[in-house]
Each structure stands twice: as structure tokens, then as C-alpha cells.
Design a binder for these strands. Sequence first.
DNA 1: CGCCGCATTGATCTTATTCAATCTGAGTGG
DNA 2: CCACTCAGATTGAATAAGATCAATGCGGCG
Lengths: 251, 251
Amino acid sequence: MLANDYGIVDPMVMRRDPGFPLRSNAHMATHADALTDTLPEGKLRVVAAKEHVYCEGDTATHVYRVEAGHICIYRMLPDGRRQVLSFAAPGDFIGLGALGSHPTSAQASSRTRLRCFSLTQLHDSARRDARLGLKLYEAVAEELVSARDLLMTVCHRTASERLAAFLIALSRRNHRRGENAAELVLPMTRVDIADLLGLTIETVSRTFTKFRLDGLIDLEQCILVTIRDAAALETAAGGGMPPVTQIKQAS
Amino acid sequence: MLANDYGIVDPMVMRRDPGFPLRSNAHMATHADALTDTLPEGKLRVVAAKEHVYCEGDTATHVYRVEAGHICIYRMLPDGRRQVLSFAAPGDFIGLGALGSHPTSAQASSRTRLRCFSLTQLHDSARRDARLGLKLYEAVAEELVSARDLLMTVCHRTASERLAAFLIALSRRNHRRGENAAELVLPMTRVDIADLLGLTIETVSRTFTKFRLDGLIDLEQCILVTIRDAAALETAAGGGMPPVTQIKQAS
DNA sequence: CGCCGCATTGATCTTATTCAATCTGAGTGG
DNA sequence: CCACTCAGATTGAATAAGATCAATGCGGCG
């Protein structure tokens, strides 16, 4: 699927809440998976935790599909602040939409396996097969929607709403993948979450604690979140809020 | 050019400040203009001030090029808050990146003339001419960069920085168009600016006043901004800030 | 054992929002 | 021509949310 899981999207949700940043990998798969159907299976590449797949400004040579592990897509501001754009999970594509050089950086959160697809080949194929070009167009258009969803969520919501929406998005992604929707294993640190949601780590931490005290979640270890009251979490996310879904997204 | 003028972009600036939301219509023109080269010139459409070209959720039937006037591209949140995504000026395209239905709304700020291009024809052409599909891909990829630029600016900056960056972006757009870079005629209201920058109109107004008192700008009428001290404005925008440029962008 | 990275918690402070009033200018109609 | 109205803009005072500064806790690893 195309990477959009805060960047995680749900079409039904979009109907209900037009304007919310959750989108559905399921229907996006149609676009992104088709991208590589016609291409030879690329080489495997393994990146260690904290290692970069590519950096902002690097010449774009490949598109990657995450096989295992997690990739954090982000951009830096000149003053050193960071905006996380998405977290790519297995099945998601990263590196799409680069025009010459990568507009984002991609760093592995943990040891990650990637399948590589040459951009040269991709472009050659696109010149021969017009449908592939349209697929590329559609895949990037999906990412555009995802980026705007994130913008909507992060810029107009309180800390609680952002974090609640983020957790819901993770839960939905789990659900879509056939995993336990109530047991979230966070593949990212508090810093990553803070940089995604435009908060400080202190605020993220405090908000986690508040949710725990309010009985919305359990928090055994900082990495393990159990959703105790999904409805209340929805409400917390939701004073008119569009469900956050931008966890992972190609870039 | 492709609509990106807070959504206004400058490649040189991007080099200097990787991560800033200013982009260059000039080099984007190569992508977007090519889109319609091969198509029959479409019908002219005139929309009155406040009238919508299309609304979020509408079935997408056309792509439009602004001939005269200004179009405000925005999305609503369920709770009624609004995020302005860009302001399209003459030469900019709007409506690109729609997959079936429009993900955004487009409203004329003033009486506006548009040139219409049928999506059906565009897609037909793209199926025949693979290069057109790639052009579409590139145009949307540009918009993706633009959307992320806006995200970076709006989510990590103070009110002064956002407004300063916004004014600089407008100034650069004027410069690119061969107009006076120091005399800005704002085609949008305070509400539009506030909704673009993620602020309230009061804060926008106060910040304008502060800039005026600090001698950075003149403000004869609320619509007419004269830049008195461009360097200071850059500084105000810039505590490491990437120059805001997202004024207009296709959608 | 002690260090180090990460997370949590507390106290204070800054910033922008909110609520409220006033101001301005462009119509409109008498 | 002038009073009236209304939308948009400005200004002020109080408030609240999150950032910042600072300290402490926790767990893994050398």
C-alpha cells in the first residue's frame, strides 16, 4: 500500500468526516501496488536503526517498498526544528514524488528491510506505458491529500486532540492489517511523535499521562499502548476533528 | 505556472533555506504549462466574487487556469474551522490532483476569469501520450512539496514569522511577475490570511500593526502593503525560518 | 555500579486566543 | 447629500494552552 497511515487512511471515515487526515491504505494499494507490478523485483536493502535511506537534497535514484521495520519521513527547518511527515510501515512505498532530488529525508526507526525499484527503470516504463504515468500521478495525488490532512490536524487542534487522533490512526492501521486494534506497539519515540504532531516531548508525555489517568489507555511501557476506551478516545480526538491518520506516507 | 505562491517558490531560496515553503512558479511553469500545450484551448468561465469554482467532494470535471482574478483554495474541518491551502493568481492552475472528486474547495476572492480544460480529454491524452502522464505526476509532486512547505511554516513558527514569511512570498511573486516587489496589493482578506497561517484575524491584525510600528512596512489601507525594510522583514521571518511562499497552488 | 538515552513530572512563563468594543469605508436608501 | 448599515479591520484586557527550564525516574549496557 501507499504509505499513508498518519498516512493511515480510512475511506469510510473520510465520508463521515470530510477533512480528516485518516486515509485508507487499502484503496491506495490499487495505485501504488500497480507501480511495481510491471517492474522487475528490485534488490533488497537493509538499513540499520537510525540509518538514513536517503536525505533531503540527495539525488533520487530509487523508490522503496518497506518489507519489514519502520521508516520515519521528515524534513528539517533551517533552525533545526524537525517536522515528521509520516511513518512508513511494511507495505508502504517511500521516495515517490521526488523530482530529481529528494524533498524529504527517510530514516529507519529500527532495522528495516527495503525492496528497491530503480527510478530510471520506472521512468523508462512510464514512457512506454502511459498507464504507469497515470498511476504515478494518482499515487502522488494520494500523498498530497495525506499531507494536507496532516496540515489540517496539526495546525488546528489541541494537544489532546492531536494525540488522540494519532492513536486512533494507529489503531485503525492495525485493524486494517488484521492486527489487534487495541494493542499498539509504538515503533517511534516521543520525539518522533512530538515532531509529527508539532508538540514538545513534554506535552506528548503529559498528554499520554492524562489519557492514562482518564482511563482512555493503559501505558505499561512507554512503547506499549492499550486502548481501554476507544469511544472516549474518539471523542477526545473529535471536537469536530477529522481522524488523524498520517502515520506513514511515501515521500 | 503551477499555482504555488505561498505557493510562490524560489529555487535559489530553496537552496539557501532547504525546508522553506517558497517555491518558484518560474521553473514550475515547465511542468504545468506543458499540461495544456497539447490540449484544445478550453472554454472561458467567469466566476463572481465569493462564488465557488468547485467544492470539496464535487466530482472533478475540469482543470482550470486562472486568467484574471484570484482563487482561494481551502478545506474545512468538521468543526467549521478552515485551512486555506493557497491563493491562485493569474497563470496558476487549480483542480489538479483530484482523484474522482475534489479534495479541496475553490472560491473566487474577486471576479475571476478561468480557462477550463476537460479532465476527460486530459486523461484521454495522457493515455495516448505517456509524457503527459509524467507531466501530471511532476505537477502534483510540485504541489506536494508546496503543501509540505506550508506545513513546515505554519506548524513551527510564531505569528510574526508566519506573516513576515507570507509577505516575503508575496513580494517574491510580484518580483517574478515583473511587478513592484515592494508594493503589495493583497487580494485576500484578513480572514483568508489568518486561515492560511493558522492564526486568528486579531493576531494577524496585531502583527500587521507591529510591523508598521517597527517600520518594516507601511499600511495605507488594509489592502495595500508597502515593504519599507525588506531585510528586516527577512529577519523577522527568519529565525532559521524557511521563506514562506505558499500563496497559491493548484489543487 | 554507573553511565546514558529516553521518558516523566513540576513550576513558571510566553504566546496567541478569546471576548469585547470601537473604527473605517463602501454601499444603500431616504 | 447625508444618515444608516454592514462587513471587515483594529485595538484592548483577560485567559488558557503549550513551551521552556529544571529535576527526577527508569532501563539497558558496558
